[in-house]
């Protein structure tokens, strides 16, 4: 279906649903966000036809940047098949007449909730994150008026104290996702609730990373090739979650895994969270334990 035909079919709504004034307002916010990496730009988030907390920020960002020549991939928990990913992908197929894909490498825009694809992103790609709580300091200081001052003065002692308390109490930083990062050496940023496993992928990525928080009305960005450093201490360096087993389907070892309960007697297996990566590996001949443990011939 051509873009015009699709837009036609979706009437009475505008291309990509949002009206042009709203798009301009969001586009301006995106440009400011890119110019001030890690700073949360307030924007007049609109009421979307899906609930707040279900990706309205990401959807508004995607709707404002997307055009007929884009190829869109939508993932939730790393997977293209989860219901909310399906629903958002369908929304853009319908309102923007855009081509969709599940292949990370084929996408020009990837909207995500909770994961960064395992396949390294390339120049020209845009990763759009759905963000529930954009403020990394929110759970330490609930007041916007206070956290805004902290960002203005780059006064992030509160976060360091909290992480250090974790170490004193638990022997480690007890934060496994939403793990705070410093962007460009200036702004403390919440990477959205991706597992900290994914944090290193943000650092100097050649892709543009955009973050949309609809309910909280904030947009922020990490331009390509920008330093994104997970907070840590010299004696407690940042480390990512590790898994004891490889993916049962494709045998991958350096990826994030989902635990799947097989029965009520403790039977469980681990499989790739990134379904595209897993399928690509299997198509290339990799086989995990469940499929007979094979590696492709060189």
């Amino acid at each position: 279906m051509s873009a015009n035909a699709a837009a036609e079919a979706a009437r009475p709504y505008n291309y990509a649903y949002l009206d042009e004034q709203t798009k301009r307002m969001i586009r301006r916010a995106i440009l400011k966000a890119i110019a001030i990496p890690g700073y949360q730009v307030p924007f007049a988030s609109r009421e979307m036809p899906m609930p707040y907390g279900w990706g309205t920020g990401g959807v508004q960002v995607t709707a404002s940047i997307i055009g007929p020549s884009d190829v869109l991939k939508v993932i939730d928990q790393g997977s293209d098949d989860t219901t909310n990913a399906v629903s958002i992908r369908k929304f853009f197929e319908k309102t923007a007449g855009v081509a969709v894909t599940t292949a990370t490498t084929a996408a020009s825009i990837i909207q995500t909730r909770h994961r960064i694809p395992e396949t390294p992103l390339g120049a020209g790609q845009v990763l759009v994150y759905q963000v529930p709580i954009p403020e990394p300091l929110r759970f330490l200081e609930p007041r916007e008026t206070e956290t805004r001052k902290m960002h203005a003065l780059a006064e992030y002692g509160l976060m360091h104290v909290k992480l250090y308390e974790d170490i004193a109490k638990h022997g480690r930083i007890a934060k496994t996702y939403d793990y705070p990062v410093m962007v460009g050496g200036r702004y403390l940023m919440d990477p959205s609730p991706t597992p900290k496993f994914d944090n290193p992928k943000m650092h100097r990525s050649p892709a543009l990373q955009l973050f949309g928080a609809g309910r909280e009305k904030r947009i922020y960005a990490v331009p390509p090739h920008t330093d994104v450093v997970s907070l840590d201490f010299d004696d407690h360096p940042f480390e990512v979650n590790k898994f004891d087993k490889p993916c049962a389907l494709c045998g991958a070892t350096d990826v994030y895994l989902d635990e799947v309960i097989l029965d009520d007697r403790g039977g469980r297996m681990f499989v790739c969270s990134d379904t595209d990566n897993c399928e690509t590996r299997r198509a290339d001949g990799h086989r995990g334990e469940l499929l007979g443990n094979e590696e492709p011939r060189a």
């Binding site: 609930p51 707040y52 907390g53 790393g78 909770h114 996702y177 989902d258 969270s273």
Partner: peptide
């Protein structure tokens, strides 16, 4: 509308984060 969205979004899959916590 904001409140119900955010409260009800907890029923969306969270297994990636839950895995990290596990």
């Amino acid at each position: 509308v904001q409140a119900t969205g955010f409260v009800e979004h907890l029923k969306l899959p969270h297994y990636v984060d839950f895995q990290a916590e596990l």
